[in-house]
């Protein structure tokens, strides 16, 4: 029997044996879980999970968009750009262009952004909140080449979460089951506001500005969130 055949036989049996040992392990783990009391995750952990759930898919979609856009956009963009550039000289047309398209689904709202072209090279990862209520300070930040996520806290461990990223081609999702929604314009900026009717969910303010998609999550009033939004620097 040649060695190649022996290796194949060994692999086949090894696969069965690995499966059986894994099944046995998983049964033991199931018993361990069933025989121990459930763990209560900390409120901070649960909040981070909610934030993670809200952001799922956004970064990958932005990357996917970039790949597709590079492959297909050149010739088509040239033609459209020329026509659109001429049209934009007309004030009526420029006013009609929307940067944010909101689509309502059963349990969430989806936002698709169209924006001025920001790239990784001119993305500013130093945008901060210029105003926060007394007692809050910047406690942590997550940075990527296309988005930033900052957390401000106070001594009572209340949080303000401030996210922003390159808007063009991005999508984001916000729960609409546990919130009341309204939108309004302040100083030329259109804001989308979600007021929570469940203590487990934050109030959320979403807006587009200068090529960035912004959002703030906190247990603060609408007026306070708008004040924060107006003072980012």
């Amino acid at each position: 029997m040649n060695n190649e055949l022996k290796e194949k036989i060994f692999d086949l049996v090894l696969k069965e044996a690995l499966q059986e040992s894994l099944d046995r392990e998983l049964r033991e783990i199931d018993e361990m879980v069933a025989n121990s009391p459930p763990h209560e995750f900390s409120p901070q952990f649960e909040k981070r999970m909610k934030k993670l759930i809200n952001s799922i898919g956004r970064k990958d979609r932005i990357k996917k968009y970039k790949r597709i856009a590079v492959r297909t956009v050149v010739s088509i963009a040239a033609a459209f750009g020329l026509i659109f550039g001429v049209l934009l000289t007309q004030p009526e047309v420029s006013a009609a262009v929307q940067n944010v398209i909101r689509t309502v689904f059963d349990r969430y709202d989806k936002y698709d952004y169209i924006g001025e072209e920001l790239t990784v090279d001119n993305f500013n990862n130093n945008i901060r909140l210029g105003y926060v209520p007394d007692g809050y300070y910047l406690s942590s930040g997550d940075y990527s080449h296309i988005s930033v996520s900052l957390t401000y806290v106070n001594k009572d461990k209340n949080e303000i979460m401030f996210d922003y990223g390159i808007a063009d081609g991005a999508s984001s999702f916000y729960d609409n089951e546990h919130n009341s929604y309204c939108n309004f314009t302040v100083k030329g900026i259109e804001y989308f506001y979600y007021e929570s009717n469940d203590n487990d969910f934050y109030n959320t303010l979403v807006w587009y500005e200068d090529g960035y998609a912004f959002s703030i999550f906190a247990h603060l009033s609408k007026e306070e969130l708008v004040k924060i939004a107006e003072n980012i620097k």
């Binding site: 968009y65 856009a69 956009v73 088509i76 989806k110 063009d168 081609g169």
Partner: peptide, 13 residues
């Protein structure tokens, strides 16, 4: 030059 974009596929799943 106006940025041209393609709508990303909705993946709530």
């Amino acid at each position: 030059m106006i940025g041209f974009f393609l709508a990303l596929i909705d993946e709530p799943s």
